[in-house]
């Protein structure tokens, strides 16, 4: 199994830090943003684009590309900087985030953002779309893979489980779901609102190959994805354990920063912590 070298991991850590900085600055210019879930998913997206996904930024609709669906579309604030970093568009454009007629908004639009494979925003939609992409690939003998990044709170949506049944029934082994398990949704702790646990067992009982990993360690995420690739009997879900608001200590594990507008003091503190 291919593993990341310490140098590769360090490189991804640095990029993740740069992404966090861009998220803070973008949301500052935009006047607010989904900090918690954008910061928690950073390493998942950075590892995907930096070490896993096959893509060509010059051909965003390249037929042979791997597909990534950010089913938790409210983390658009993390996806956009990642796509910019990997050359799909000029990163300077990110300054327009959430401005009138910007391609970049609170939820991503596949027809406006080069490299975005599906428009998302409403929770519970992405997994079924990923099944469609994986089915098309299988029918056409393509070897591309499909990655669907879900929020953990999103797994309270019934359509996630509807699609989960179909995905395992169809044995779509080139489909991988990654759950950003940050344990908080908009109103509070998932476990106190509508408990997801035993989350891994639930996915297992729906016929999925289940892996768990530290969702902030690119080497661990990469390793789990490699294991998912090696599993040929059906789809894999990786429950990536994360911290909502990761990287900005006053936001960490605070549902109040699911969406927030920072005060000047908070902005400075966040900048300082990320620059460290």
């Amino acid at each position: 199994m291919q593993t990341l070298t310490p140098e590769e991991k360090q490189e991804l850590d640095l990029i993740a830090n740069k992404m966090r900085s861009q998220i803070i600055e973008m949301f500052h210019v935009a006047g607010g943003g989904h900090f918690g879930g954008s910061l928690s998913v950073v390493e998942i997206l950075v590892t995907l684009y930096g070490a896993v996904v096959r893509f060509d930024p010059a051909q965003p609709r390249w037929e042979e590309r791997d597909r990534v669906i950010l089913s938790k579309g409210h983390a658009s604030g993390a996806l956009c900087p990642v796509l910019g970093h990997w050359g799909f568009f000029d990163e300077g454009l990110l300054d327009t985030f959430n401005q009138l007629d910007s391609p970049f908004g609170m939820h991503p639009d596949m027809n406006k953002i080069p490299g975005c494979d599906m428009s998302t925003g409403s929770l519970g939609h992405g997994l079924a779309v990923g099944i469609g992409m994986a089915l098309a690939g299988r029918a056409d003998d393509k070897d591309y893979r499909v990655y669907v990044v879900l929020g953990d709170g999103e797994c309270q949506e019934g359509t996630v489980w509807e699609a989960a049944m179909i995905g395992s029934h169809l044995k779509l082994n080139r489909l991988t779901a990654i759950v950003d398990r940050n344990r908080l949704s908009l109103d509070g702790a998932t476990e106190s609102i509508n408990a997801l646990e035993p989350l891994a067992d639930r996915w297992r009982s729906f016929g999925w190959h289940v892996l768990e990993c530290d969702g902030h360690d690119p080497a661990k995420i990469h390793q789990a994805i490699q294991q998912a690739h090696d599993y040929l009997d059906g789809p894999t879900v990786i429950v990536a354990n994360t911290v909502k608001g990761k990287g900005v200590s006053f936001m960490e594990n605070k549902y109040q920063y699911h969406y927030a507008i920072l005060t000047n003091e908070e902005l400075e503190a966040a900048r300082e912590e990320i620059a460290r």
Binding site: H125, A128, I131, G132, A134, L135, A136, E162, A163
Partner: peptide
């Protein structure tokens, strides 16, 4: 599973 059917159709159409 009508909702998933529409989502799957969308995914197929992107391909």
């Amino acid at each position: 599973a009508e909702q998933s059917m529409m989502g799957i159709a969308a995914g197929l159409a992107t391909c």
